[in-house]
Each structure stands twice: as structure tokens, then as C-alpha cells.
């Protein structure tokens, strides 16, 4: 970079109700002047690949169908292991989808948040686990037995990192 020395100029003066800050203004006695060059000038043959540029794969686009209604939720525990969901997995939950029997749902049940399969057992809706080996540990939670419940959303996908 070339340097040259210029006197203090009016363009550095303060305007309005501003006050001079002697030490904060750049050293007016020696101001480095840049060597100008065009940063983008290009000559020669354009890249033949330029017409074929596409966006990289975006997993969000694939996983999320309805962005404003989709929330990510972390799975805790193994109660849906037979459905392929493990502790620590992240699931996409779409609140715009109508919940129905057979769907994996996130639900608030007596103040706690659960991820379970919604099933109809003898005409009653229940939140069910899918873990055959420990079926006894995860009895169905019947919605009509809850003080308070809401189906929060329907699970539409999952991601896992190893």
C-alpha cells in the first residue's frame, strides 16, 4: 500500500452537537492512502460450470414441510425403541397435522411432555410406548384418565448423530 501525508480535512470534523475527541479521530498527520484496484474485474473465458450451480442439500428443507408449525424436540429414553427412536434423537414435530391413531405424537399429559404412539384401545385413545422387552415398564396412558392433556403435534421425521 502506498502512503502519503495529507493535512487534516473538513470531512473529519464533527457535526451537530458532537464534540471533538482528539485521540479518537484517526491520526490526521499521517493517513495511509490505499492503492486502488478493482476487486472484481475479470477477463477471459467465463467458467463453463457457472450455469450449473445449485444449492447444496439442505436437510431442513427435506425434514420440515411446514416451517412455522414445525418444532424440534429431543427424545428422552427408549420407550419408542421398536419404532426406531433412540434416546437423544431429535424429532421434527409438525403441529399442523391432525393427530390420529397410529401416529407418533408429542403430547402434554398431566403437565409432562411425552413422545408416544397414539392408539385406540377398546375405543379409548391412549399414549403408548413401543418397547416389547420392557412393555411392563411403559403402560398405556389413557387420555380420559388425565387431569389435563393436549396433543402437541405429530412427529414427521427424526435425525440422529453418532
Amino acid at each position: 500500500m502506498r502512503q502519503s501525508t495529507i493535512p487534516p480535512s473538513k470531512s473529519l470534523a464533527l457535526g451537530g452537537n458532537a464534540r471533538w475527541l482528539g485521540s479518537t479521530a484517526p491520526d490526521a498527520r499521517r493517513v495511509p492512502l490505499p492503492f486502488f484496484r478493482s476487486p472484481r474485474a475479470q477477463a477471459g473465458f467465463p467458467s463453463p460450470a457457472a450455469d450449473y450451480v445449485e444449492d447444496r442439500i439442505d436437510l431442513n428443507e427435506w425434514l420440515i414441510r411446514n416451517p412455522p408449525a414445525t418444532f424440534f424436540v429431543r427424545v428422552q429414553g427408549d420407550s419408542l425403541i421398536d419404532r426406531g427412536l433412540l434416546d437423544g434423537d431429535i424429532v421434527a414435530v409438525d403441529r399442523s397435522i391432525e393427530p390420529g391413531p397410529g401416529k407418533i405424537v408429542v403430547a402434554a399429559y398431566d403437565g409432562d411432555i411425552f413422545i408416544k404412539v397414539l392408539r385406540q384401545i377398546d375405543g379409548r385413545l391412549a399414549l403408548c410406548s413401543e418397547h416389547q422387552k420392557r412393555a411392563a415398564d411403559f403402560p398405556p396412558k389413557f387420555l380420559d384418565q388425565a387431569q389435563d392433556h393436549t396433543i402437541w403435534g405429530v412427529v414427521t421425521g427424526a435425525v440422529r448423530r453418532f
Binding site: S11, A13, L14, G15, G16, A18, L21, S23, T24, P26
Partner: peptide, 26 residues
């Protein structure tokens, strides 16, 4: 309080940080 006119209009965090810091000294 203190108002400083910057040598040129900018959106650079480093420049603001430097001037804010000098202003505080005053």
C-alpha cells in the same frame, strides 16, 4: 454522553468498538 462523527460511514463492529472505547476514556 458523547457523540462522535465517524471518519466515514461504516457497519464494522471493530471500528465501532474502537471508537466506543476511546469515547469511554473521555
Amino acid at each position: 454522553s458523547l457523540t462522535i462523527r465517524l471518519p466515514s460511514a461504516t457497519d464494522d463492529t471493530m471500528t465501532f468498538a474502537r471508537f466506543a472505547s476511546k469515547a469511554l476514556d473521555q
